[in-house]
Amino acid sequence: MMLKQRVWTAVLLAPLALAGLFLTSSDVFKVFVAGIVLLGAWEWANLSGLTSLSSRFGYTSLIAALMAALNYISPQANFISYLSVAVLFWLIALFWVVRYPVTGAWSSVWQRALIGVVVLLPCWMGLVSLQSLPSGSALMLMLLLLVWGADIGAYFAGKAWGQAKLAPNVSPGKTRAGMWGGLAACAVIALGFVIYLELALLDGVYLLLLAMIAGVASVLGDLFESMLKRHRGIKDSSQLLPGHGGILDRIDSITSAAPVFVLGVQLLAIS
């Protein structure tokens, strides 16, 4: 029954998501992604420990207000400095995940609520920035394929060769072999886009390295959300998507991979 729910949910939502990402104007795209992020904010409020309807609504409204303010300040999607802060945060998050179950500066309600701002806003900024580039559609597709490829590659490699656990205290199902399998998938995807974008040798090598880093970041995003769910004692961020859990369970890898990938693309000056 659970598998049937997952399949039908994916079949119904996938065309809508792809249309929203690739077949809309810049302004519609901003609103579309903002809607997804705000659903994630509603769930993040619960991860933070804000359980009442009023506090969750207030937190979601805060995220919406911050997105509107950023859009007003930087209407041309010039978010580089903000994305740099996000990348720095994910380096800190890696330290927290490695040390778990030792708690750190994320264990209180207000700390996790603040972290949600640092996680969700740069995800929106990164996707908006990427879509605004001349080759934005191709790069957006590459980012999504990297995230999906890292997940699918990890699943099959983990099934075939997974013995040593990657982060047993956070997510016992993830293995080191799975991570390497996911990175191998990312490398194949990156090589395809190097050829498609007709990049020079050095730029191609850079994009390949960036793809691998984004793949690692995607795994970190998944692990970080798993850590917070384990701390809160919940299995899924919500039951919004039948068979799939919540929105955060679907976009956790993108929240970490998007800022890293987009910042790297901007530094490489791929347009």
Score class of each variant (00 low, 15 high):
Cys186Pro: 03
Leu38Ile: 02
Phe57Val: 09
Val260His: 04
Arg250Pro: 10
Ile189Asp: 02
Leu143Cys: 09
Arg56Tyr: 06
Val118Cys: 14
Gln266Trp: 10
Gly192Cys: 04
Thr255Trp: 03
Ser256Lys: 00
Asp151Ala: 11
Gly215Cys: 00
Leu88Ser: 05
Ala138Arg: 03
Gly35Cys: 15
Val97Asn: 01
Ala184Asp: 06
Ser129His: 00
Pro172Phe: 14
Glu225Thr: 03
Gly162Ser: 08
Ala184Ser: 11
Gly192Trp: 00
Ile213Leu: 15
Gln131His: 15
Pro122His: 01
Gly162His: 02
Gly181Ile: 03
Leu145Phe: 02
Met212Cys: 09
Leu88Arg: 00
Arg250Phe: 08
Leu146Val: 07
Ala19Ser: 15
Thr9Gln: 11
Ala157Arg: 03
Gly49Glu: 05
Met212Gln: 14
Tyr82Thr: 01
Gly204Gln: 01
Met1Val: 01
Ala214Pro: 02
Val98Met: 13
Leu23Ala: 08
Met227Asn: 08
Leu130Trp: 10
Ala190Gln: 01
Ile63Thr: 06
Met212Ala: 07
Cys123Gly: 09
Arg230Gly: 10
Thr9Gly: 07
Asn46Thr: 04
Ala34His: 01
Leu267Gln: 06
Val31Thr: 11
Leu248Trp: 02
Met2Pro: 01
Ala113Cys: 10
Leu208Ile: 06
Ser137Asp: 12
